[in-house]
Design a protein around this nucleic acid. Sequence first.
DNA 1: TATTGTTATACTCTATAACTATA
DNA 2: TATAGTTATAGAGTATAACAATA
Lengths: 151, 151
Amino acid sequence: MSYSNDMPDLSHGDDAAAVNSLRSAVMRLGRRLKHQRVDESLSPTEMSVLGTLARCGSATPGELARKEHVQPPSMTRIVALLEAKGLVRLEPHPEDRRQKVVSQTEQAEAMLEESRRKRNAWLAQLADTLDEDEWAKLRAAAPVLEKLAHL
Amino acid sequence: MSYSNDMPDLSHGDDAAAVNSLRSAVMRLGRRLKHQRVDESLSPTEMSVLGTLARCGSATPGELARKEHVQPPSMTRIVALLEAKGLVRLEPHPEDRRQKVVSQTEQAEAMLEESRRKRNAWLAQLADTLDEDEWAKLRAAAPVLEKLAHL
DNA sequence: TATTGTTATACTCTATAACTATA
DNA sequence: TATAGTTATAGAGTATAACAATA
């Protein structure tokens, strides 16, 4: 990939180094984000589920479990916690009585908006340490990371 | 940042969206990587500590805890586990008898090399789903993510 | 008195296995 | 018989609080 000569797809040496670096950075950043949590009452995965619902509309618990790379029983618990907090609504599936449909409440939408606002503090902090070029690289890579995340 | 007009540092709208996307992707990718673990006997953080030691030479438990964004007691446990597996060596600090110096063993170096080799399987899998442009974006962003991770 | 590291303990999140209900 | 979701249980990883040794 990294070599634009006539050996098209062999020797992923540079990519291997990049993946190494990515792996390490993603894991450490993940821990950072966990601490820098904007809403203390929501776990990272709960937050992520709300983000997914905001993007995709509604989904069944099974779909959410697959998207978040979590096992079904874990998603059951997460959805139950979110419901208890009034952030999601559970409705029967129109076609299959085994399934349920999870969707976000108006309260969740307001919470996400509030959350976005709070993040600006962290964002401002980052803005001081990253230059325009670095920001551009992050913005460009974000969709690719998303693609990898739900490969 | 995203706007090259005469209002230099206000309105981080695009960046906020990018950070949102990044946050979600990083967390989900983190979970992915956790499962796709190359060495079953090592936790992600143990792996990350070895990587840090390989890059930085040696460090005290306190330094490692700060670098990995983990509390000191957690690092005590992690270092103990790594020592039990013969992957790190603990020596007294030459100038401060409270501190210790942690460094990797030859066995750890061999393990990391083996690990890099194993990762090529996952890498090959990714290579099929990402095009050259996407790879380039990831490679460009990797150092920025590392910078964020140990900000 | 402050700092480094450790011990003891509890918590959060997730997984696996077994179960129920529906397809 | 297979699938969606749940319940019960266990495990991994981390944190907090209290403590020891050294600065």
